[in-house]
Amino acid sequence: MRSLFAVAMLSGAFSLLSALLFVTLDAVDVAFTEAAVGAGISTVLMLGTMALTARFERHASHSPALPLFVVTLTGAAIIYGTLDMPNFGDPAAPVHQHVAPEYFERSPHEIGVPNVVTGILASYRGYDTMGETAVVFSAGVGVMLLLSGLRRRKRKGDPDEDTQNKGGKA
């Protein structure tokens, strides 16, 4: 597919479908986030990038043999690793034995918030969430530094110098 516009739209649709998958897997909070982020913001950002860069992909000339080989090898290694995993939905799986039951037992009287996910997110794992907020913060600062900084180096004969200077102070 050469048209990047179609690629952006399809990746938005993919996000929406994965949100539906998350709903069926009982992760309503995650589905909510994925639908808002994946299908909403990231599509807008992709389109914004395409408006600034290119709308079509050039034809690639190399053969796909080597990438296919690498990918197959990695996939085989991962599948070999899953052979020891418990069955899907198994209540006796190790994941469900250690921390989660404790959260279910303690959070009704310690936190008293019906949504367990919120309770864990903001209280039991408050450090974690603070780190994530800081990551979002620094990514935002990074984008601002990259895109909205003053352009110090200007090259002569730059074909899109005019368009760049217009949006220099956003």
């Binding site: 982020v37 994941v95 989660a100 996910v117 997110l121």
Partner: peptide, 17 residues
């Protein structure tokens, strides 16, 4: 299990950033 939900929920937003 709510624990993976918490981890992935924050990971999605960090991912978009």
């Amino acid at each position: 299990n709510p624990l993976p939900h918490v981890l992935i929920l924050t990971a999605i937003v960090v991912g978009i950033a």
